[in-house]
Each structure stands twice: as C-alpha cells, then as structure tokens.
C-alpha cells in the first residue's frame, strides 16, 4: 500500500493506494489554504480509517516535494519523515507538477502545468506524454511570459488556474490554447500515489533523510 501526501500548495490531498491490486482505496483532496499543519495529520488518519487499513500494510509513502508553498511542502515532507522514521518505510519524492502531468499523460498535445507563485507570478512546467517527458525546466514568471513561451502552439493548460488567471490566459490571443476546466485542474493525490508506484518500480529510492524540498528560488 502507498500513502500519498500532498500539501505542496493551498490545495492538499491524501490517498491510499493498493499497488498490488492496482486499486485506490480512499482519497481526499481539499482546499486547505494555510491550514496544512492542522488538517493534514487528521486527514491521513481518517483516510486509513475509512479504508480499514493499518500502518502495518503501508510499505511506501509518496509526497510532493515542490515547487510550491515553502511552508506547505515542509508540512507534508515533515509528516512523511515522521511516519518514515516510525515505520522504517521509504518515501518517494514527486515534483508537484508531475502529479498533474501523470493525470494527463495520454494527452496528445503539449501540457503546461501551472502553479501559483504569489505576487501575480506563476510557475509552469511543460510536458508531452507524461512526467517522464518534460519539455524543459520549471519556469517562473508572469502569465504573459507563459503565453510568450507557448507562442501559439496547441497546448493544454492545467493546474492552479484561478478566475483571474483564466481570464488573462483566455485574453492572451492564442486561439489554440486549451484551458482545463476547474475539475480538470484538480491535483489528485491518487495520481500522486500512482506516479510514486511507477517511480518505485523503476529505480532505487533515495533514503528518507536525504529528501529535501524542491525550491525554485534560492
């Protein structure tokens, strides 16, 4: 079983995934705003309880390590490290935009995953065909910079797109741009768990102690 923990942004999620039987047992995704420390641990407990699963069955933790809110990322990673110490289980670190890239891995067009970076700026990372196929590094800038980079190519935009950003992107003069609906944009912890299962199957995992957040700005 994998317990997936995501508090990388104001959006949070916890999922329980049975990788042997390839089945999601429970999932909770919600807007936590800045209440990660208060809400995360009870939510993890609730997700396990709902599925009737104890920690003895949990072999792996998945956690988003950023980019995102510095505080949010540290909350999730710290809780995961505490669990990892107690259970002696590994942690799979997953970059935040990779969760949505995993959800849209079958999308034919390029995908651009957006995260809010504060002060009207956004972070984005583009992919084609899933998290293993990025089209470049994570970038930080204003929505206009993002539109300039896309430069007219047919692209699907997903991620943290609020009403203001949606308006700005729609008015950006790129007719081939597709913007995910609010539900399309949800970063689901079940996808985080699936992505972690893929990573764990493919390569040796880092030691939990060595896992640190991914900070875009030094």
């Amino acid at each position: 079983m994998i317990v997936a923990i995501d508090t990388a942004t104001e959006w949070a999620g916890v999922a329980l995934y049975d990788r042997q039987h390839r089945i999601v047992l429970a999932e909770s995704n919600w807007r936590s705003n800045r209440r990660h420390t208060v809400e995360l641990a009870p939510q993890v407990e609730a997700v396990l309880a709902r599925a009737g699963v104890t920690w003895d069955s949990v072999a792996l933790l998945a956690v988003t390590i950023g980019p995102g809110s510095y505080t949010g990322v540290r909350v999730g990673l710290s809780l995961a490290k505490g669990i990892a110490i107690a259970r002696r289980i590994p942690i799979v670190p997953v970059p935040t935009p990779d969760v949505i890239a995993h959800a849209w891995r079958r999308e034919a067009n390029p995908l651009c995953v957006i995260l809010q970076a504060g002060r009207k700026r956004v972070l984005w990372k583009c992919y084609q065909g899933g998290p293993e196929h990025p089209l470049g590094e994570t970038l930080l800038g204003y929505p206009a910079d993002l539109l300039a980079q896309i430069s007219g190519r047919a692209t699907l935009l997903c991620g943290e797109i609020d009403a203001v950003l949606r308006e700005a992107l729609l008015n950006g003069g790129i007719p081939s741009l597709q913007i995910g609906s609010p539900a399309d944009c949800v970063r689901r912890s079940a996808h985080l768990a699936e992505r972690a299962a893929e990573i764990a199957a493919a390569a040796p995992l880092p030691l939990p102690d060595a896992i640190v957040p991914l900070y875009i700005q030094p």
């Binding site: 641990a41 710290s78 809780l79 995961a80 490290k81 669990i83 110490i85 107690a86």
Partner: peptide, 9 residues
C-alpha cells in the same frame, strides 16, 4: 509535523 508523523504511525 515530524512529531505528528511519529505519533500517527
């Protein structure tokens, strides 16, 4: 949060 993780698990 580390303390909670230990307590939880």
């Amino acid at each position: 949060n580390v303390a909670k993780g230990i307590a939880l698990a």
